[in-house]
């Protein structure tokens, strides 16, 4: 439980000063981005120039669709894995836990290469099965790249949520006549919901911000990040900023709304 800050206490003053430095470290670049924006370029990008506007619109659609889809996939596959890791001991558990964290440790360009080598047309899966769906330069390539780099954030956050719930609650539910599934869905999962939402938010945020792995796996269809990079190279900083500002604004608004929702769930 958080307690209110007491004014004037030296220890808290020091903490607050250091904390403020870090907040500035985040706020100043955001403010700089907004201050640098050129309204006429922005107008050109979103309405004046049909080609740029169409590119921007489709990049937004691809980015949000792919990141939501990758988050949904991660929830379906990640919640069971997080539950198993939180509740059971088995041989090789630490190896599985380390594997989950691999995408966090490797450069994302390398992650993209790994995805291509595994699931691409010349990859292991294709050579073993004789055929594999095309992921290079496809929407699903973007989804796979986003999901891969987001695995640790989704699984680890949800795992911690499950670990914080007393397993005795589930045992008691079972002695009262609930199947394992019913005990999980009526007791454990609702109690872990705040953590599951936090995991989803982090995974979605990671997916939205991904660029390295996407550049390798699927340059097309272009996501917002890829398009920002392209416009930076082709048209210069002004155009990159004009595209970045609405993207940052939209994601900030969405994540703030989700954090409020998360707070409402935890107060219930």
């Amino acid at each position: 439980m958080s307690s209110p800050l007491v004014k004037g206490e030296p220890f808290l003053v020091t903490l607050s000063a250091l904390a403020t430095l870090l907040i500035c470290f985040i706020v100043v670049p955001i403010a700089a981005l907004f201050l640098m924006v050129d309204p006429s370029t922005m107008a050109e990008v979103f309405s004046g120039n049909p080609m740029l506007a169409s590119q921007a619109r489709s990049a937004f659609i691809v980015t949000f669709k792919a990141s939501l889809l990758s988050t949904a996939i991660l929830l379906v596959l990640g919640v069971p894995l997080a539950y198993i890791l939180a509740r059971y001991d088995f041989p090789g558990k630490s190896v599985v836990e380390s594997l989950v964290d691999v995408p966090l440790m490797i450069p994302h360009i390398v992650a993209g290469v790994m995805i291509l080598m595994a699931f691409g047309r010349g990859g292991i899966i294709a050579s073993l099965t004789g055929a594999a769906p095309k992921i290079e330069d496809t929407f699903w390539g973007v989804v796979i790249a986003m999901a891969f780099v987001s695995i640790p954030l989704a699984v680890d956050t949800v795992k911690v949520a499950f670990q914080s719930i007393d397993p005795m609650l589930e045992y008691v539910a079972r002695t009262l006549g609930a199947s394992r599934f019913r005990a999980f869905t009526t007791v454990t999962l609702p109690l872990a919901l705040k953590g599951v939402i936090a995991g989803a938010i982090l995974a979605w945020a990671r997916g939205l911000s991904e660029v390295g792995a996407i550049l390798v796996v699927a340059y097309y269809p272009k996501t917002v990040n890829v398009l920002i990079l392209e416009w930076l190279n082709v048209y210069g900083l002004r155009y990159a900023i004009a595209l970045a500002v609405p993207f940052v604004l939209l994601t900030l608004a969405l994540f703030t709304a989700l954090r409020i929702l998360q707070g409402m769930v935890s107060r219930k």
Partner: peptide
């Protein structure tokens, strides 16, 4: 159980 394990939700 000792802590009663009432379902908090």
């Amino acid at each position: 159980p000792q802590n009663y394990a009432l379902f908090p939700n």
